[in-house]
């Protein structure tokens, strides 16, 4: 899975903000703010990844138990999918 094309992620004033650019702005009218973990996962998902790859990267980056990390990733992926942001 992978984030759809056409989104720009940028740090703005201590926040990570994602906005649609170009034609994507017609389909997705709005903006997303991400917390640190979500921004970390979003950046990984700019390229094609599976959940195991995300988990491995997250365990390498954060001091977190595997079960909690896995649940967090599932929640995030579910949300992205519900918003139609994944391909």
């Amino acid at each position: 899975m992978k984030i759809k094309e056409g989104f720009v992620l940028r740090r703005v004033a201590d926040a990570t903000i994602v906005v649609p650019a170009g034609k994507t702005a017609l389909d997705f009218n709005g903006m997303i703010t991400l917390n640190d973990t979500a921004a970390f996962l979003w950046k990984l998902l700019e390229e094609d990844r599976n959940e195991d790859e995300l988990l491995k990267a997250m365990l390498g980056e954060y001091d977190v138990e595997e079960d909690i990390a896995r649940a967090g990733i599932e929640r995030f992926v579910k949300k992205l999918s519900a918003e139609g942001l994944l391909v």
């Binding site: 720009v8 940028r10 740090r11 650019a21 170009g22």
Partner: peptide
């Protein structure tokens, strides 16, 4: 707060621009 300000400002400026322009615009908003 700067963050809440950014969240309000972004919808009140140009939306449909290329990714490169959007990055420049967000730096200006910052």
């Amino acid at each position: 707060s700067p963050k809440d300000a950014a969240v309000r400002i972004i919808p009140q400026t140009v939306r449909r621009i290329s990714s490169a322009r959007m990055e420049e615009l967000l730096d200006t908003v910052d």
